[in-house]
Design a protein around this nucleic acid. Structure first.
Lengths: 211, 211
DNA sequence: GCAAATTAATGATTTATTCAAG
DNA sequence: CTTGAATAAATCATTAATTTGC
């Protein structure tokens, strides 16, 4: 009956040791050349092929990540709950910390020299319409009409804005802050958080500021 | 004088994790409202301002791109050099495993079913020439008659593989002890790989099979 | 002790994402 | 918008640990 050779590679202790040491040393995704070298080196300790080395790093990396994530996730959850409590308690002055206006009363927290944006923020081009959202770090709720931001950046924000879903009330005239209260913070993150965080079955994140 | 407090925001692990998760979840350029919400949320974990969130996404996005670009660039360079090298050296017989023809006669790298590529491997366009190399992990040296592993087929990851081929002598018949002797190379571990490829520089990877 | 039975690890494949070039 | 290139995540599958009954 055929060789019945084992169907899969099984690292010898020496090989494993070396691989782990490399990993510890920083090797994560060796390229082909490196894999080849590693393979050559390890073959001294036993049968091995390049793909084994490749897979080993892939798997090891992934599993380390996974391990870490699980750990973090767990502790994060604990903290979130803790904080949630705290949050409920002091549900009053949430929004206060938004840029302490004490820093730059007017706006522009950036030096004029750098030529960087001061306070505006978004632009959305869609359906031929261009919406420009104005936002200043200082005070969220002061629309700040003056149109000083004519060009500057914004350019880089292409389609990404699409996903912004305008959670916020579309530029109401003197709009104010949407979330009167109860904010269910965290409507932003998309669908990730699979696995690991399955624990809490996030109810449904939707329409945040129902206003 | 004054507070002398640290001059810049430094994310706490929780904040960072959340931000990264959002990023993975698709958030790239949050709008003002989103930033506001994120900030509020993150402020539970430590001091933070809207601008920090804004900048974080800006930077993260940019750096991810940059990282990728650098990586690609580097890889490409190495590959090209490698291949070029190999090509020159082994005009001989090393190339045995070059295209098994048994798999996909023509070329069409896609397996009809999975829609994934089977075992082909590399393609290099240089000097106006395009080479396509085929390589499969399944036994490099033994064509593998009986086939328990006719399906599987490595769907290996692209470009990395193309240099895997024949770096080593096609493995001796049975006990492949590839002692090319001396070849103690081992530049892989630790240190390097630490990024910063200083492109344009990669003079020569110590050529592996200098033989 | 020592295998069959069961479970935990982990090697190998497949599927989903991601960025960005076309 | 589509697609190429590369990967990381998810999943499948087999091997090694271990538990268990004798």
């Amino acid at each position: 009956m055929a060789p019945a050779a084992s169907t899969r590679w099984s690292p010898t202790p020496e090989q494993l040791m070396i691989l782990e040491e490399m990993y510890r040393g920083g090797v994560r995704t060796p390229n082909a050349t490196q894999i080849q070298q590693i393979t050559t080196h390890l073959s001294f300790y036993g049968k091995i092929e390049g793909k084994n080395v490749f897979y080993w790093f892939q798997n090891h990396k992934a599993r380390e990540r996974q391990k870490l994530r699980r750990k973090l996730s767990k502790q994060l959850q604990q903290q979130q709950q803790q904080l949630f409590h705290r949050h409920q308690m002091q549900q009053n002055n949430h929004l206060v910390h938004f840029f302490d206006s004490s820093v730059s009363p007017g706006l522009s927290f950036y030096s004029p020299n750098t030529g960087f944006l001061p306070q505006l923020v978004g632009i959305l081009d869609q359906d031929g319409q261009t919406k420009v959202m104005n936002y200043t770090w200082n005070k969220v709720d002061v629309p700040e009409k003056g149109g000083m931001m004519d060009k500057s950046m914004m350019s880089m924000y292409g389609s990404d804005w699409l996903m912004m879903m305008d959670v916020s009330p579309p530029l109401s005239p003197c709009c104010k802050r949407p979330p009167p209260k109860t904010l269910e913070l965290f409507p932003v993150s998309a669908s990730n958080l699979k696995e690991e965080c399955k624990l809490q079955e996030a109810p449904t994140q939707q329409n945040p500021c129902s206003v």
